[in-house]
Every structure is written in C-alpha cells, then in structure tokens.
C-alpha cells in the first residue's frame, strides 16, 4: 500500500487505477479582482481505495475547502475531481446530488443528525432518498460493530455526543460508499468517544474495505490514519506515511515555522 501512494506522490498519472478520489490542479477562488482569495491554489492529490487518509493543516490552510470540493459540495474554480472514475466538475447539480447520495458518505464535527428523525431513520436517510434498502447482513454488521442496536428508536436529542457520532458513522457507511469524508469527526467529542470513533474508522478501512478521508487538526486523530497529507495556504505541503505524533509534528513545524516558534 505504501508503495502505491509513494509512487503516486511522484507522478499521479502513472499510478494504477486504484484511486477512490483523485484531484488534479484544483483551484478555488473566493471573490474577484483585488479582494480575490485563492483558497486552493493548484492542489493535486489522490486517495487510494481502501486507504485511511487524514488532511492536516493550520486554520485557513484550505483543508475544509478541499474536502468540500472533493465531495462535490462546492464547485471548484478550475481543475478536476474524479470519484470512482467519474469527473465531478462536469456534473450538473442533480447528477452531483445523486452521486453524493450513492457514492459518498459524510461524517461532521457537529454530528448533523436530523432532529426530527429517529436514529434508524437518520441512518437510512440517504438510501431512503434513493428509494433503496440496505442488505440485511450489512445492516446487522454495521449496527453490531457500532453497538447501536438498543438506540435505533431514539431521537438525536436523546443520545450522547458519542452515540450521535456513531449514528452518523452508520449513516455514512450504510450505502457502502466509494469514499467517506469525515470533517473533524472527533472535534466535539470527549477523548474516549473520540478514540472509539477513530477505532471504528480504522476498522471500517481494514475489515470492511472502505475508503476514508478525514480532515482534522488533532495530531492524535491524524495518527489513526494510514497517511497524512499536509496543506498550507492552499498548496499541498507533502505527506507522511504511517504517521506518528513525532513525524506529524515535525512536518507541521516545517510548514508553519512561525506558529511553532510562537507556540513552543
């Protein structure tokens, strides 16, 4: 696995077809003229199938923008994004929506469950919108792993933060998506719940064969991933494979020396 990503880092075009998500020369500009801000300034990055990747970078580095563009939530100004071989930038809103529904799963920092629906209804929502039902075996497996069996009839308001995020994880996985995007999934959780969620994401990659892309600024969370890619000022600033707290901190220090100097 590491050989593949290493090869891609040198030359994406020559990589084998094993990318779940592939972005080339991605540019995202907000505003126009003198006040224009280049949030993404030509990002090229690929995320391998069955790989757990974390995106790190300081505040304002463009990591959330990158994730939004990769997930088809926001339109890039220039460049291309492919998910499972489908070019996102050429899709209209409806096609993009249907793609999100079937091929992408989302996990958010603030859980983002619908308050009016029960846990079960929340989990089934994306499939429900597509008029589909999950295979029984898959349902049992996901619910079992996440230990949600006893909570399915509860509404989000009646669940703890950790439980809510587990419901969100189940929702993201239920459609067996091409890729799961997780935006600071541990940001609103206590350390124990956060560890549980990270463990689940790792397990879903190892045992269920899922692909996960996670945005985080928590070094501990990032170390749960197979690989960490770094972003600063809208530009890719290298990556670390099999990350450890030390290797990640070193890379962060490298891309923002001023901040580290002030902080440490």
């Amino acid at each position: 696995m590491s050989a593949i990503t290493r090869a891609f880092r040198e030359s994406p075009e020559s990589a084998p077809g094993g990318y779940a998500v592939l972005a080339r020369d991605l540019v995202k500009t907000y505003g126009s003229g003198a006040t224009a801000v280049r949030a993404l300034d030509g990002v090229t990055v690929g995320f391998g199938q069955g790989e757990f990747t974390a995106i790190m970078g300081p505040s304002g580095s463009g990591k959330s923008t990158l994730m939004h563009c990769l997930a088809g939530l926001d339109a890039a100004t220039a460049g291309s994004v492919q998910i499972g071989g489908v070019e996102l930038t050429k899709l209209n809103d409806k096609a993009l929506t249907l793609l999100r529904r079937r091929r992408i799963g989302f996990i958010f920092q603030s859980f983002n469950l619908l308050p009016t629906l029960t846990a079960e209804q929340n989990i089934l929502l994306p499939l429900d919108l597509a008029g589909l039902k999950p295979p029984k075996q898959w349902w049992d497996q996901v619910i079992g792993v996440l230990d949600l069996g006893g909570r399915l009839k509860h509404r989000p308001g009646e669940l703890s933060g950790g439980q809510q995020q587990r419901v969100a994880c189940a929702r993201a996985l239920m459609s067996r998506p091409e890729v799961v995007f997780a935006d600071e999934p541990t940001g609103n959780l206590d350390s124990r719940s956060g560890a549980e969620v990270l463990a689940f994401l790792r397990m879903s990659v190892r045992e269920l064969g899922q692909t996960v892309v996670m945005v985080t600024h928590d070094t501990t969370a990032a170390c749960a991933a197979d690989r960490v890619v770094f972003l600063a000022d809208g530009i890719m600033r290298g990556d670390v494979l099999s990350p450890t707290p030390d290797s990640v901190t070193a890379q962060l220090r490298m891309i923002r020396p001023d901040r580290v100097a002030a902080g440490e």
């Binding site: 999100r100 529904r101 983002n112 597509a130 929702r171």
Partner: peptide
C-alpha cells in the same frame, strides 16, 4: 439553513 444543506449533502436534490 444548515439542516437543509445537510440534507442536500446527503443526497436530497434541489427539486426534492
């Protein structure tokens, strides 16, 4: 607003 955006992210089309 945020809830609607979430639904759109999860695959609710504009028409829906």
């Amino acid at each position: 607003t945020r809830e609607s955006a979430l639904l759109r992210a999860l695959g609710l089309t504009r028409a829906q």
